[in-house]
Design a binder for these strands. Structure first.
Lengths: 160, 160
DNA sequence: AATGCAATGTTATAACATTGCATTTGTGCC
DNA sequence: GGCACAAATGCAATGTTATAACATTGCATT
């Protein structure tokens, strides 16, 4: 079988993400939560996957270091990271992405490319505030800080 | 285990949806596609499910009339309906809903309530133009004039 | 009849996610 | 240190959602 695991970039020359990881750890601690080893490893994998990762691909990676890892291992870590605002789930693709923006109080737009399934996080104050205002006026409310929108990515736009 | 099948209302006094189904059939025909019996039955079930349906609940219903039905039976019908713009999948919920609006030339927002799955159309020039501008600047492009957003509806906001 | 083609039937399996319970680990307290 | 408690993890099984792969049917055309 030897299915290759797609999409996650190989190990960096060195801890390119260490800073971000350390920040994440600090922000967890500040909230009384702890970024344990497993969670940190999952977050690191997310950081290396700019376009999102599937849970079972994460699992395969995690298993390299922890042969005993099972689906709950990964899903629990993901749940934690999402709770902490450090990651997002892209519903329609069952894809997980790290949040690229510091404190995640502001909702972000996620552009999901219907062609290549790549995910781009776009933080646009103007759009989001216009959106929030309109929703509020209509009596609606965003349910999650992740607003997914289907939009062709630059690559797929140009290929077309 | 006799799981009860939730959510789909019982047969109407009479063909309350016949009109809509006939319109759907006509619009398929106009595009050279055909709304076959199975597809029509699935669409009818969707029409009766204002809050959206899960694929396997649909399957259970379809099986009442067609004992041989299997997952592909339903998924193929759903794929077809989505292709034809007659239905949508709500990503995060794995829920399918009938499309309640005619086809649109002007982009508009569709608010899908994650609680009750109700769909509201919101036409907000300002939001849409802000969105289009931001996307264009980032090199992306909307793939369809219907932009679906997950947001709690007024009812569910107040119940919470 | 032979062919072509779209739809459907049939079986199996892939892909995604959760439950339940046992065990270990971390932390505050004596 | 040793204890109690909560949090986190290990692990097996299962549940849920979706597709692959291939066979068959039915109908229109030649």
């Amino acid at each position: 079988m030897t299915a290759s695991i797609p999409d996650i970039q190989s190990v960096q020359p060195c801890g390119a993400n260490t800073e971000a990881l350390d920040r994440a750890e600090a922000s967890c601690r500040a909230r009384g939560a702890s970024l344990t080893a497993i969670r940190r490893e999952v977050l690191e994998l997310l950081y290396r996957s700019p376009t999102g990762v599937k849970a079972y691909d994460l699992l395969a990676r995690i298993k390299e270091a922890r042969p005993g890892a099972s689906p709950p291992t990964v899903y629990r870590a993901l749940d934690f990271l999402i709770e902490q605002g450090l990651a997002h789930k892209i519903g329609r693709m069952n894809l997980f992405v790290a949040c690229r923006h510091a404190s995640h109080q502001i909702p972000s737009l996620f552009l999901v490319c219907p062609k290549c399934s790549g995910v781009t996080e776009l933080q646009e104050q103007s759009v989001m505030s216009a959106l929030s205002t309109s929703l509020a006026e209509a009596g609606h409310r965003l349910e999650s800080p992740e607003v997914e929108i289907s939009a062709l990515c630059p690559k797929c736009v140009s290929v077309q």
